[in-house]
Every structure is written in C-alpha cells, then in structure tokens.
Design a protein around this nucleic acid. Structure first.
Length: 860
RNA sequence: GCUCCCGUAGCCCAAUCGGCAGAGGCAGGCGACUUAAAAUCGCUUCAGUCAGGGUUCGAGUCCCUGCGGGAGCACCA
C-alpha cells in the first residue's frame, strides 16, 4: 500500500511517502477556514455558472452511486471556477418521504429525528468526499422554511385551476392500506413493500393538471436537443405520448348524449363494425343499465373479473381477447349503420374517451376481438393499390428478395393480420380512392361540417396525482368547510405546520394519519369561522423537488419562495448532473412547474435545466448491486481503503460518464498508484517557483501545453476519462525528464508539476492541494485559474506525413508542419516507398492534405 | 410490436473534419532495486475495429442489410 513505510535505506528527510489519510486530515480544516466555494458575495464580479447535482434522499449513508454523481458534478463545478466563473454549486436534502416514515413506524420513533440524524451522517461523508459545495445554501425540504413555499406553490396552481380534486381509480395496497404511486407497483402487479397484489380503488385525490402542458412539454424538448442526452429526450417524448387523430361522435340508440371516441385512423370510419367501451368506465355502467337483466348480470361478472386481474395479467399482450356485448347500439355518423357496443378490457378507461370505434380490418386488436366473437370485418383500405407507385413489401425472403402481398391471402378475416399500412381508400363513400393522409383530412372536414367530429390530439401522459395519505410530507394547504367547500389557506397563514408525530399513530390505515390529529385538523373556516377540517393529505415529494433549484438562490429568505432577480442572475441551471432514473418523472415535473411559474410571471425562462449530464450506475459483476444478491460495494469501505481522491479519480477515469461502471473492471488501487506518482513528481521538484519555464525541456513543455490546450474541450464534452488519461501521460513524461533527462531542477518539470496539481484539483482535490503546497504555494489550488497554453509550444517541430498508394500506407515522411502541398507531393512522389509500390503503373490521381497525408491512386 | 443507443487488444476504454487503429489504465510477461518479499521504477506481448455490402483516393468513423448486447414505451385506439 502507498502509505506503508519506506525502507530504512532512504536518506533522512526523503522518506515522506504519499499518505492519503494524513493529507485528508490536513486539508479539510484548512478548506473549512477558507470557504473557497462560497458563491453569494454580491460584489463578486465574475460571470456566473449554476452547476447543480441532483440532491439526495437522506437514506443512511452515501453509496457508490452518490460517489459517482458527486465526483462527476464536482469536476464540472471545479472546472468552471478555474475558468474564471463564480460557480454556484449548492446541495440540499430531499428529506420528506416514505423511508423515514416506515423506519419511524418500525422503531416507534419520530421520522424527523431519523431523517436529521441521517442527514448529519451523510453530510459528514459528503464533506470528507471534498465536493465543492457552497454549504451556506444548504436546504432541507422537510424544514417548515422550505415546505411553506411548497404550500405557496400549491396555492398558485390552485388559483390557476391547475390543482384540483377528483375521484379516480388509484393503486391500492390492501395489506398496508395505502395508495401507492405507479412506480411503487412492481411489474407483476404487487406492491414493492408489502408484496400484496395491488388493486384499483376509487378515491378522491389531488391532481396537478400537467396534461394542460403536454404540448409545450413535448415541443420544448426540441430546444434541449444537443444539450440533454438524446435518450432522455426520447424517454420524455415516449412518456408524453402524443398521438394525432380525430374525435368522432356516435349517436347511441336510446340515449340523448352522443359518445365520443378518439381515433388515429378516422379515414377507416367506413370500416367500423362495432364499438368497444372500457368495462370499468362510467359509460359502460350507464349503457348496460338500459339492457336486459341477463346482460347486466353477465357484465357484472365480467367487470368483477377484470378488476381482480392484476396489472401483469392485464398487460400481457398475447392473451385472449375477452368482453361482453352490452345489448346497445351506436350509429355510424357517416353511413348510419348500427354498430353493436361491447365492453372489453383491451380498451382503457383513462385513455382517450374510454371508448373506441372498432375497425377490425385495419387494427390488429380490433381484429383479434372480432375473430374471437365472430364480428364482421370490412376492408376499406386497399393496401395493394400503390399510393406512391411502390408496391408494399411484406417481407424479405431468405435470398433477400422482397415478398409481395398475395392478393388471395390478404383478407384480414382469413389471415388474422390486420392491414395497418398505407393504401388507397375503398368502399368509403366520398373517401374512396383517396390516400390515407388525404382521406384523414377529408373525413375530418366532413365530420366537422356536420358537428360530428374534429381533429384531436391525445396523450399518454396523465394528470399528476400529488396527494398521499402519509405523515412525513408537506400538508396540503386547503381547509374543507362543513358544507363541502374548499377554502385555500390564506398565504399569510402559511406554513401549515405538520403536527407533532408524538402520540400520532403513523401506521397506514387508508386515511392520512394527519386526520387523527384532532387539535390540528379541526380549524375554524377562514371565511366565516364555522367549524371546518384541514385537508389531511400530504404532497408527493416530487412536488418538493420540482422547484428546489430555485430555492437555492436564496434559501434563507422568509418573504418569498425565490427572488426573481436572483433567478435572472443565476437561472436556469447551466449544468444539471444526475442519474438517468429521474429521466422522466422528476425532470418532467420540474419542467412543468417551471412553465407554470413562467406563465405566472415569476420566471423569464421556460426550461429549468439548460444542459443535462446523466451518469450511469455503479454495478458489480455485470449486475446491479443489491443486498439480496450480496454484491454490494460500500462507499465507506472504499474510501477507507483507497482514499477519497482515488475513489473520485476512479469514477472519472472509468469511462464515459453515462456508461455503467462495473467496480470489478476498474481499479481504485491503480488510481491510488497514479496519485502517488503525481504527488512524488511534485515532491521531487527542486527548482524554485520563480524559475523561468522557457528554459525548461522543450519536449516536456510541449506535452504540458498540449494538455493545457486540449483538456478544457474534453471536460466540456464530459470526456473526463480522456482528461485523466492525458494527465497520466503528462505525469509519465515528467517522470521521464526527472529520472533520465534534465532532472528535478529543470524548469519544465516544475511547470508540468504545477499544471498537474492544477488539473488534478478537478478529480483529486486533496492530492492537488498537497502538491500545490509542496510546490511552494499557499493553499487554494481550487481557485487557481486554468493556465493558457502557449500557442508556440503547440506546433511540433516536425510531423509525420503518411504516403498512401491505393489506400495502403507505403511510406512515412518527416516534414515541417508548414510544408506546402506542392512540396509535400514532390517529396512523396520521390520517396522510396512510393517508387517501389507504384512501379510501372500510371498515377491517375494524387490527393494532398498537407502536412498529414498524401494519397496516390494508380491504374494498371 | 414501436422508438433509441452500443459492438475497437484477455478486460475497461481512446482515436477533433473521413487521413498512420493506441492516449491511458487493468491483467499478463521480462528486467532493475532487495538476503527475500512488498512497494517502486524501466521495458514489453496482445486487436485490424461483430459480419457482409456500398460511397470514397482513403472508412473504426458516412449509408444499407444482417447478427449480438442494452435501454425506454407498449392491448394507448
């Protein structure tokens, strides 16, 4: 190990070895004194950068995932500081949430104490980890000083009609007796905590109307192209899931109101042969009411079965279609045909209008259903009729030849394959003969003219369910009057404080534990003083994190959530760093809230995070670390074994940040060795700080300055691994000059060592600071500005030009970097390698890219 | 099923605009130092870029097809 004692043969005074533990101990208090990472000085004239790492949930201690994100985020923050920016790099705690509450229930303690104990522990680790946070901006979402503004935010949305209560089907855990978020339901339909099969239950819950912003959330992603990982942009697009089509209204026999269906293929309206409604929809219940008792009974049985089925069963795409006829009929608005109405669970109650027009010839799901229940299939799009002059290719055979549709086998009723492709409309009245896209336009015109339909969009995105029947969260600032009215808590009465957990039964009962705090829940109605009750739900913690980046601007201001002037100066966040696990929910919610605050005039921008860096996961042996697999790498152990700097360096060096790091593929021991090597270089430097660099070894100086020139671009494109590799190269070159060149007194050695210390500050701050001291400077290498490369040293004295003949390298020439194309061509033509390989053949083309390459093409 | 990303040495990974396939590390080998070992230092082996085709003077890089791996969405009308 690096810190073992050297042999006794070393001369006195030279036996000092790299010892990360003592270096850590030495510098942490010095930095505490210096506070080099404060960003709040109003007189600071430097340009500003806002670098934000996703804040952690305080779960006990830091884990390797934290070690990665905070190492990488810190590279970026430290880099911009060295480039002359006043960098705001804040940190806080996402400290409300279920784990604290569950731990509290298990141990019979207060979630508050558990949470703040954890924070203290994690904060100590984080400080040791030498992340360059501005601790003066620290915040906790569970502090009343924070959640007061959460409640303020809720009220702003409420006033705009963007926060509302509705009855809806939610995930219900029948063992824990609580609502679950979608992400707490495992793919097999069981609860991730209790293991119980989750059922759907109808409850009144609070929602944020995020669907109002669906178009903007989707379209504004284009602005982020190039600055956000395309993977995340894609995931958000998928999640919002806009589809474009039409709403079509159908008359229902024996019913006043029409039923509206959404379809992406209104052109196939003449091919509709039945209608399907979601069995768990209000519409189904109402329609079946007008039917015979037998049908009602059959429907009831079916509905019960559907509601008992798990998500997994329901989502299995290959299962048999099921359904019941409701005994009712719809009328096709374009041709007056009677369409039987069925209830089937392949239609979802909460997508579109909970009802579809079934066109079995051109939709696979409808066709499967039609074949199961012997319903008619009518083809209205002729996919064999070339629309663009190209015959549709169904498949490629084993010889790579196209397989064309067989006229006799394309009837969906026979083949069971719906014809979903392009084609020319047939049997469709005024649409007959049109292409798909023209037919869609036309049918929308026809429907609109008759008031029976219109162009429409639909989204996969649903409104955001924000209420939780839990204790450890932000109370919803609404008071319910005895008459059922909702009264927002006046803003000057915020915050609505959480009642003391003492004496409250926090066990989930299906209603919020806050409801049992009688003194808290019973309040006079703010309007007329009559008895009223507080809303007892708390907010989803994603609300807390949807705007925390704004609270960092002025975390101690008790007069407003954030200062718009500060937002003007700092926001939006220039660089956001965090895990891809938040690619959808957190980022979508933060984008939504930012747009709402923009609309309310509080912000001048509409996207919160100008650039995003997603780091991968730290894994072990090819799989995710987990307690049950027993393949966990512990942060504390790694830091004790290898030191903070080696762990941080390993994170940066492992590969591209977005790739997963398999801890078995990387070598913290190797990182530690490199740090010791770099450190010894600084220790060996024997010249004084005022030595003239220009007298130093020119070869080493070139390596140093090439590094200075290249590293900034590499950091800015997040190629941290390459920067580290280049640093290793620099240290190797320096070592060589010390040992076998001009020696430790050479000025270039000092210059290289100083550059190494300065750059190493990005990855290994303790080692860098210690090197800086060894080199004769005052502490504070983190604030040393990045040195500019000397352009004269970037030009090599000579370069190697490659001469290719017919694409193969036939000679290499050492030439001046300023050589002209003509000179280089002449040299190339005369070179021995070219003479030999061209021989008798005729040269037909010569391409010269001075000074790098000459390419000669021959004939014969 | 739809959408997207990735295949370079035994392993992790580099390779600005298409211009010598190798910067760096791990592992391995040899050597120096040592009584020996560890540590340290020096030297060093190893791929022609998943496969096939195309464009080009020139392809790891661009295009097409296939194979392999990964991710997201999915009875979403």
């Amino acid at each position: 190990m690096a810190h073992q004692h050297e042999s006794a043969s070393s001369a006195p005074g030279e036996d000092e070895v790299y010892d990360f533990a003592s270096i850590q101990k030495k510098w942490l208090p010095v930095w505490d004194e210096m506070k080099p990472f404060r960003s709040g000085d109003p007189d600071d004239k430097r340009p500003r950068k806002y670098v934000l790492d996703m804040f952690p949930y305080p779960s006990g201690d830091l884990h390797m995932g934290h070690a990665e994100v905070y190492a990488l985020g810190d590279v970026v923050a430290r880099y911009w500081r060295q480039q002359g920016f006043n960098v705001m790099h804040p940190i806080g705690w996402d400290s409300f949430g279920l784990p604290a509450e569950n731990a509290a229930i298990k141990r019979g303690i207060d979630p508050r104490g558990w949470t703040y104990d954890n924070i203290a522990q994690q904060k100590a680790s984080m400080r040791l980890y030498a992340t360059s946070f501005d601790w003066e901006r620290e915040l906790h979402t569970s502090d009343p000083e924070y959640y007061k503004w959460n409640q303020w935010l809720f009220l702003q949305l409420y006033k705009k009609g963007l926060a509302y209560r509705k009855d809806s089907w939610v995930n219900w855990d029948p063992v824990d007796l609580t609502v679950l978020a979608n992400e707490q339901v495992l793919p097999d339909g069981t609860s991730e905590r209790s293991g119980a099969v989750v059922v759907k239950k109808k409850l009144t819950q609070w929602y944020f109307r995020i669907t109002d912003y669906a178009d903007r959330l989707l379209d504004d992603l284009n602005q982020l192209e190039g600055s956000w990982p395309s993977k995340v942009l894609n995931m958000q697009r998928n999640w919002i899931g806009r589809s474009i089509g039409a709403d079509v209204e159908f008359e229902i026999e024996g019913r006043e109101e029409r039923v509206t269906v959404f379809t992406t293929r209104p052109d196939t309206l003449w091919g509709a042969t039945f209608m399907v409604v979601a069995p768990d929809s209000d519409l189904a219940a109402e329609l079946v009411e007008g039917s015979t008792p037998e049908i009602q009974e059959r429907f009831g049985t079916y509905l019960t079965a559907v509601q008992k089925s798990t998500e997994m069963e329901r989502q299995a795409t290959d299962r048999e279609k099921t359904g019941v006829f409701l005994g009712r009929y719809a009328v096709n608005p374009v041709n007056g045909e009677k369409l039987p109405i069925w209830a089937a669970d392949y239609v979802l109650a909460d997508y579109g209008h909970g009802a579809v027009m079934a066109v079995p010839a051109h939709d696979q799901r409808d066709l499967d259903f039609a074949r199961a229940f012997d319903l008619p299939v009518r083809v209205v799009v002729d996919v064999n009729a070339p629309v663009t002059g190209v015959i549709p290719v169904i498949d490629i055979d084993e010889h790579g030849d196209p397989v064309l549709p067989d006229m006799e086998s394309t009837d969906p009723a026979e083949t069971g394959i719906a014809l979903a492709g392009e084609g020319r409309l047939m049997n469709s009245g005024p649409l007959t003969g049109l292409s798909k896209s023209n037919a869609i336009k036309k049918v929308i015109e026809i429907l609109a003219a008759e008031g029976r339909g219109r162009a429409a969009k639909n989204y996969r995105l649903r409104d955001w369910l924000i209420s939780r029947q839990r204790y450890w969260g932000t109370p919803i600032p609404i008071i319910h009057g005895a008459d059922g009215t909702e009264v927002p808590v006046p803003e000057d009465q915020l915050p609505v404080l959480l009642p003391d957990a003492e004496g409250l039964d926090l066990k989930p009962k299906g209603t919020s534990p806050l409801g049992a705090a009688e003194d808290w829940v019973n309040v006079p109605n703010p309007i007329d003083g009559t008895p009223a009750r507080r809303d007892a739900d708390t907010m989803d913690t994603f609300v807390d994190s949807s705007w925390y980046f704004l609270r960092f601007l002025n975390p101690n201001d008790d007069t407003k959530a954030f200062d718009p002037r500060e937002a003007e100066r700092w926001a939006p966040v220039d660089q956001y760093v965090g895990g891809v696990e938040h690619a959808i929910l957190h980022l979508l919610y933060a984008r939504f809230i930012t747009k709402v605050l923009f609309d309310l005039g509080h912000l001048s921008f509409t996207e919160p995070f100008s650039a995003l860096l997603n780091q991968g996961m730290v894994i072990l042996d090819g799989s995710k670390m987990s307690k049950s697999k027993g393949n966990i790498v512990y942060f504390t152990e790694e830091v004790e074994k290898h030191g903070v700097d080696a762990v941080r360096l390993t994170m940066a060096f492992a590969g591209p940040p977005e790739d997963d790091i398999d801890w078995n593929d990387v070598s913290p021991v190797g990182s530690s060795k490199f740090l010791a090597r770099a450190w010894r270089v600084a220790k060996d430097v024997s010249s004084s700080p005022d030595v003239l660099w220009k007298n130093g070894d020119p070869g080493l100086r070139r390596v140093t300055h090439r590094f200075l020139a290249d590293a900034p671009g590499l950091v800015e494109s997040f190629k941290f691994n390459v920067v580290v590799a280049r640093l290793m190269e620099l240290v190797n070159a320096t070592r060589k000059v010390i040992d076998s060149g001009a020696g430790p007194a050479d000025a270039a050695v000092r210059e290289a060592a100083e550059v190494t210390a300065m750059a190493l500050n990005l990855f290994a701050p303790y080692t860098a600071e210690d090197m800086w001291e060894k080199l004769g400077y005052q502490p504070g290498v983190a604030l040393v500005q990045w040195r500019k490369a000397d352009p004269n040293l970037l030009i090599a004295e000579s370069v190697t030009a490659v001469v290719q003949v017919d694409g193969k390298v036939r000679d290499k020439l050492t030439v001046s970097p300023n050589i002209s194309a003509d000179e280089l061509e002449a040299l190339a033509r005369a070179s021995a390698g070219v003479q030999r390989s061209v021989g008798e053949r005729e040269i037909v083309n010569v391409i010269v890219r001075a000074p790098k390459v000459v390419s000669i093409a021959t004939k014969g």
